[in-house]
């Protein structure tokens, strides 16, 4: 094996497949983090998004409709979170654990109830996203295959990261979100309900996580597998915690995760047992987490 094997165009082209879902979910998590909602149910949000996307893509026969239903499913999860954490005094960790479990149970249950299959559902009627080829960009060496020929959701994710940076800095809701996370009493004193602001954070988070799920089920592949979020929501949670919800560092760290993740996908061809390549994203995330936490701890001491 040689290093060139890792840096061929196919490898570059596979990067966005890993980055997109984690980035979208992490951006959703960032909204909650900045608004002071401790949402560690991203895993469940993404899973519901993935399932809803397949529902939409199958029944309406279009990827766009799949994305729309995915957003709908994600928003629904956000609303449930809001109902039990904002309107009722449920602890966010408890609500998160319950919602992750709910997503795992409900998607499997509905998979069997609606499609009468267990494990995985694949069907030609599921219409997924087609890659978008950008003529000039595609020709650029190295970056070309990354930036061209990806699903629409990849571009949405990149745009969302940049937009969110501006949103937090200059948008009314962005400003209020930050205030809700930092000193909500100031919002109350100004006559703005922090709860309402947080509701918006959860709704938008649900929408983004829904899209993350759509990327998994109708862009990366055209099928739904039980528990197909497979820990990506948790990796997104780690990314959010590490960057404290700042969109641009978030983008950077997710790219790092994605790079390691696709690396592992790549080395699978080198004869490693599959379990090790499966393990790689988590070990890589843990390693980044350990290094950065340790560095932070030393700096603050």
């Amino acid at each position: 094996m040689g290093l060139e094997a890792l840096f061929d165009p196919a490898f570059a082209a596979s990067l966005p497949r890993f980055i997109t879902p984690i980035l979208l979910a992490a951006l959703g998590g960032a909204l909650c983090e900045r608004a002071g909602v401790f949402n560690i149910a991203l895993e469940g949000f993404v899973l519901v998004g993935a399932f809803s996307a397949v529902l939409g893509a199958y029944f309406f026969g279009s990827a766009a409709m799949g994305a729309l239903t995915a957003v709908f499913g994600g928003v629904l999860m956000g609303l449930i979170f809001a109902e039990f954490h904002l309107r009722r005094p449920g602890d966010p960790i408890v609500v998160s654990i319950a919602l992750n479990l709910l997503a795992a149970g409900l998607t499997t249950y509905l998979l069997r109830a609606i499609f009468d299959v267990a494990g995985a559902f694949r069907d030609p009627a599921i219409v997924g996203f087609e890659p978008i080829h950008i003529p000039l960009v595609a020709a650029i060496p190295l970056v070309g295959p990354v930036l061209s020929g990806q699903s629409a959701l990849f571009y949405v994710a990149l745009g969302a990261a940049v937009f969110m940076h501006v949103f937090f800095a200059r948008h009314r809701l962005g400003l209020r979100l930050r205030a809700a996370g930092e000193n909500p009493a100031a919002l109350v004193a100004g006559g703005v309900s922090p709860e309402r602001v947080r509701l918006w954070a959860l709704v938008l988070c649900g929408a983004l996580c829904g899209l993350a799920g759509a990327q998994l089920s109708i862009a990366n592949v055209n099928l739904f597998v039980e528990n197909m979020s497979a820990g990506r929501g948790w990796i997104a949670v780690v990314a959010v915690l590490l960057t404290r919800g700042r969109p641009l560092p978030l983008l950077a760290i997710v790219c790092l995760f994605g790079f390691v993740d696709s690396l592992s996908f790549r080395v699978q061809g080198l004869g490693w047992p599959q379990q090790f390549t499966d393990m790689m994203p988590y070990v890589a995330t843990l390693a980044v987490l350990v290094v950065l936490s340790w560095w932070r701890l030393r700096r603050s001491a």
Binding site: R172, L175, R176, A179, E182, V192
Partner: peptide, 27 residues
């Protein structure tokens, strides 16, 4: 207890909850 956001600028703190907004809700 001050009702201020430490991480925000003076101007952001002043307009918070009473933001003059332009298009699409941007301040």
């Amino acid at each position: 207890h001050f009702m201020l956001q430490d991480s925000m600028t003076v101007l952001e703190n002043i307009v918070l909850c009473n933001e003059p907004t332009g298009r699409f809700g941007f301040v």
